[in-house]
């Protein structure tokens, strides 16, 4: 049986315990705060990061470089036969580009790099699926096929108190204008083939929850046995309310809950939540 290593980047927001359980290898992006650079999740914890964000710091991110991937790839190929790297949307970060360059320089025949067209737990769910299959002994072809099969099926609904962070980091084009932080107006965003798109705006948290549940009901999917991803940056109470509503209104019992890492936190800001699920 071939040994397959699953690699991703630090913006996949997979809970730490699952990273360990499924032996997922994470290449961190760099977080820059006040001229100091930190490796996401390595040199700085989420708690430290959100503390700094609260103080009003304005972090930025830098994509993982080809060399950073080369080091990880070279190291893994000593003990694994094959590497599958599932990387966040190339439309939002050049990290995928770096991974591909590294692949070509290390050993293109033994490495597959996938542009997931997702981010945060959207990418995380793909990675987890791949990692579970690798542990169970699936072949690289089976894993890659499954990942590509899942990519168009994963949906997420995200709500923000403010889009300032997304605009500032350039992850939401200014052409997607939004009226701003008044009247408790909350924009609702979804993933649009690797980019963020404002799909609606509502006033108040209750209407956000209503919107999420209506959307999920309209898919016609029976979510009772499905695992649903939940994520927040620094908005735990709101996430609890969302979870309670999903339990009572959709009968969901299995949740993959995570707090977003520093990379996602940099671009989403402290007041963001998201619900992730497989549609269809």
């Amino acid at each position: 049986m071939e040994k397959i290593a699953i690699v991703t980047d630090s913006l996949s927001d997979i809970p730490e315990d699952l990273v360990k359980t499924y032996r997922i290898f994470i290449v961190p992006l760099t977080i820059n705060i006040d001229g100091v650079s930190y490796k996401d999740g390595v040199d700085i914890t989420k708690e430290e990061f959100y503390g700094l964000l609260k103080e009003g710091k304005m972090p930025t991110t830098t994509q993982a470089s080809p060399v950073e991937f080369m080091e990880v790839f070279k190291d893994l190929l000593k003990s694994y036969d094959y590497i599958i790297a599932i990387i966040l949307s190339s439309k939002l970060s050049g990290t995928y580009q770096s991974a591909v360059i590294a692949k070509d320089m290390v050993d293109p025949k033994r490495i597959e790099v996938i542009d997931s067209r997702h981010y945060s737990l959207g990418n995380g769910m793909l990675v987890l699926q791949a990692a579970k299959m690798a542990v169970a002994g699936a072949s690289k072809e089976e894993i890659v096929e499954k990942v590509y099969d899942l990519i168009p099926k994963i949906r997420y609904i995200m709500a923000f108190d403010s889009l300032d962070y997304l605009y500032r980091g350039g992850r939401l084009p200014k052409s997607q204008a939004f009226i701003g932080n008044i009247l408790n107006i909350k924009p609702i965003l979804m993933n649009d083939d690797g980019e963020l798109k404002i799909v609606d705006k509502v006033r108040g948290q209750k209407k956000v929850i209503r919107w999420m549940i209506d959307y999920m009901k309209n898919t016609g999917v029976d979510f009772t046995d499905r695992e649903v991803g939940l994520i927040h940056t620094d908005k735990e109470e709101f996430l609890n309310e969302i979870e309670a509503a999903l339990r009572s209104e959709l009968g969901i019992t299995k949740f993959l809950r995570s707090r977003a890492g520093c990379g996602i936190g940099t671009h989403a800001g402290p007041a963001a939540v998201g619900v992730f699920f497989e549609e269809k």
Binding site: T62, Q63, S65, P66, V67, G94, Q97, S98, I101
Partner: peptide, 9 residues
């Protein structure tokens, strides 16, 4: 080694 950011790469 120093390639940083998209343009650096």
């Amino acid at each position: 080694m120093g390639a940083k950011g998209n343009s650096g790469v």
